[in-house]
Amino acid sequence: MRPDMETRGTRTDAGWRDHDGFVGPRQPGTGPRSDPRGDFPTGPAVGDAMPDVRCVSADGTRFDLHEHRAGRPAVFVFYRSAVW
């Protein structure tokens, strides 16, 4: 699926304003403001088993989601960047 790009935005004195009123330096539809319009992929469905996640943690140590949560319910957040 390739979603359409959301490009509704207006230029204001403070920056580019999107259709929800968020104002930022970049024009909606570019760079980190590449919003989808309409449907877009959101990963496995509700009711599916959470896939394995194997990567490294902030410490640089090996991480395995299901091993780490050890039978606890969990909240798993995907975000853009802690840096910018």
Partner: peptide, 23 residues
């Protein structure tokens, strides 16, 4: 696409939070 997935103790996905506005 930023979002959040909630799983239960068995590892089954129970909720998803994804918004079209990445903000």
């Amino acid at each position: 696409y930023p979002g959040a997935i909630v799983v239960d103790a068995e590892g089954v996905i129970t909720h998803k939070f994804f918004d079209r506005n990445l903000a």
